[in-house]
């Protein structure tokens, strides 16, 4: 499991790691039942404070992406949809928001933005990307 993070960024390190582990699960690079390093193991590997890694695992357990088996280790759960529908919406909503704010700032009409989005969707569709 390769994880990269920037400890000197304003984004909490735990949030950076949670994001990446979720992505590894969604993209199938981490498979259901796969064992992850222990809290201390991963903290040592990443040269991080163990409380930060504990925070990451706790959050991912709460979101039912990982589970801990007492005495055995931390494992990836069976369901592959690490992103709930709410989360999928939330992630895209953030991008859309930035897009709309940016368009307004530089004075691009919203109808124009809608047309651009529609065009991108049409361009992607033949690739078979609908759910």
């Amino acid at each position: 499991m390769y994880l990269a993070f920037d400890p000197n960024s304003g984004v909490p390190v735990s949030a950076q790691l949670i994001e990446q582990i979720k992505y590894l699960v969604v993209s199938g690079q981490l498979t259901p039942g796969e064992m992850l390093p222990s809290v201390r193991g991963l903290a040592m590997q990443l040269h991080l404070n163990p409380t930060t890694v504990a925070r990451v695992y706790r959050q991912l357990e709460a979101e039912e992406i990982l589970y801990t088996q007492q005495g055995r280790g931390v494992f990836v759960r069976g369901n592959r949809s690490a992103y709930t529908i709410d989360e999928k919406r939330r992630r895209v909503r953030g991008l859309v928001r930035d897009l709309v704010v940016e368009a307004a700032r530089i004075g691009l009409r919203f109808e124009e933005v809608q047309r651009m989005i529609e065009k991108e969707i049409q361009a992607l569709k033949p690739e078979g990307d609908d759910e």
């Binding site: 000197n8 960024s9 304003g10 928001r97």
Partner: peptide
Amino acid sequence: EEKAAGLFCTTEHLNLE
């Protein structure tokens, strides 16, 4: 993020410094 929804602004993160 919930509270910021609908606000016309951009958001920046702050590092320790």
